[in-house]
Design a binder for these strands. Structure first.
Lengths: 93, 93
DNA sequence: GCGTCTTATCATCACCGCGTGATATCAGCG
DNA sequence: CGCTGATATCACGCGGTGATGATAAGACGC
């Protein structure tokens, strides 16, 4: 999941989808990337369950799944929390 | 920052440092990676401000900076939150 | 059915980043 | 001061991955 967010274009897509559901052509307009490029990234996001596709006529709307994002946010926050509580701990050499 | 966490070895290092402050030799033992490899990753983490180095004799202790982790966790959580509140929004084609 | 528009899939290429080896630096110790 | 051990730096090779082009698959209107 973090690997998916690590790519700039995918991060942009996720950011755009956080605001509203969009179809592929919107994402192509907004990002300026080629359609095939967007489509490839959407597939990865889809297979990872980060977004879900809703076919609508000849368009395909994509919406974000907040749970997956929230889960990774919680994971990272958990690391920060552990670091805070163990800030004094140090293993001797 | 997310790019840093995207690498498996770096993620492992961050995870280990979340529990306690460690020096390079500890990380080498725990991860099984070569020293030069660990050191290269530590540099990236250091330059990004994710960890801070504390020289201690001929050893170098590394500790995690919780703020940076917390900030990225908040950022991702913010995206999830926005997605939740705008789950009904949809831009027409 | 035909043309057009939107989207998806696949193969290919180029490039970036990780791992590694060689080497330098520095601290401690005799 | 020389030696050893811990760490850092640099250059290089190779593999994974993102971008692209060509193409296929549907959906809509005529």
């Amino acid at each position: 999941m973090i690997k998916l967010l690590a790519d700039p274009l995918r991060a942009r897509i996720v950011q755009l989808l956080a605001g509203e559901a969009l179809c592929t052509c919107h994402l192509v307009e907004e990002t300026g990337a080629r359609q095939t490029n967007i489509s490839n990234h959407l597939r990865q996001l889809r297979e990872a369950g980060v977004v879900e596709a809703e076919p609508c006529g000849r368009f395909t709307y994509y919406r974000l799944r907040p749970e997956v994002l929230q889960a990774t946010a919680d994971h990272i926050a958990g690391l920060a929390e552990r670091a805070r509580t163990h800030s004094e701990a140090r293993r001797p050499c």
